[in-house]
């Protein structure tokens, strides 16, 4: 039994080494002047200075965050309304919505992005500079995931609560907001989180629908690896390290809060 446990631990060490070595090495070298991993150079915050003072980089970062928030909020509202409506609607229409909802989830992002571009830009002639194709395209990817977060929660909800609220004098809209939406808040929160991360991670939809001058972290990084600008390249190492730190911090905060709530240690 003990021997087995040792094997398990060794395997986990191997997997975690695989997953974390690249990120951690990049993080380490981001604090030096090295232009390549493996070059020994002294400590330097040069990359971080470049990252936070180069207008091109800062506007790209803020653009990504702003876009993710806009797309995230719109998708969350739309997906939540869609799920509530479908849940209380007729069975046939719910089935139809679910089917359409599934399309962007299983579809390749390249195809989603390309198809939105073809319809909006090529056929309807919408200007990419309006950001409309970009926002609509990303929402087409994100909203179905919000919907999928909301639906299970609706299924678990006690249907009598809404009726009780009506009996106690709420208008249907009030009952909806005070009972249903209130109960959905955790699911709405994780839907928003999912939508924001999907938007921030997206490359394919963005690249087919974005205005020419606008870049997100994804499109910028891909272009930077094609180019040979070393200072920008190593500044992206700093960006990767900052995001890694933010993710770790976020996970710690969420887990600390939920473990305090449940007193059951770590939970997901």
């Amino acid at each position: 039994m003990k021997h087995k446990k040792k094997k398990h631990i060794l395997w986990l060490i191997f997997i975690f080494a695989f997953l974390y070595t690249p990120i951690l090495l990049l993080g380490f070298y981001s604090f030096t002047d090295a232009a390549m991993i493996g070059q020994m150079r002294g400590f330097s915050l040069h990359n971080y200075k470049t990252l936070f003072t180069t207008p091109e980089l800062t506007s790209m970062i803020w653009g990504t965050i702003l876009l993710a928030l806009v797309v995230g909020v719109l998708s969350t509202i739309l997906g939540t309304m869609g799920a509530i409506g479908a849940f209380y609607g007729r069975r046939k229409s719910r089935h139809a919505i679910e089917l359409m909802n599934q399309i962007p989830v299983v579809n390749a992002d390249v195809v989603t992005g390309f198809s939105v571009c073809i319809l909006l830009v090529v056929v309807l002639g919408v200007d990419k500079d309006t950001y409309l194709p970009l926002i609509a395209g990303q929402m087409a990817l994100c909203t179905p995931f919000v919907y999928l977060q909301i639906m299970p929660r609706l299924t678990q909800m006690d249907p009598h609560l809404y009726e009780a609220a009506l009996d106690l004098g709420c208008s249907p809209f009030q009952a909806l907001m005070k009972v249903v939406v209130r109960d959905l808040m955790p699911a709405i929160g994780s839907g928003l989180f999912t939508a924001v991360t999907l938007s921030m991670d997206d490359y394919f939809i963005t690249t087919y629908t974005k205005p020419a001058v606008f870049n997100t972290i994804s499109t910028y990084t891909v272009n930077a690896t094609r180019g040979s600008q070393t200072s920008v390249k190593t500044a992206l190492w700093a960006l990767s390290t900052v995001i890694f730190a933010v993710v770790i911090l976020g996970v710690l905060v969420v887990n600390y809060r939920s473990s305090k709530e449940e007193e059951g240690g770590w939970s997901l």
Binding site: M81, A83, G85, A86, Y88, G89, M100, A136, T143, L176
Partner: peptide, 20 residues
């Protein structure tokens, strides 16, 4: 309550089904 899904259905038709 079921009317709430109308915006999403329209969105899906315009930005998911129609492009494909």
């Amino acid at each position: 309550r079921r009317t709430l899904s109308i915006p999403y259905v329209l969105f899906l038709l315009v930005f998911v089904v129609a492009p494909l």
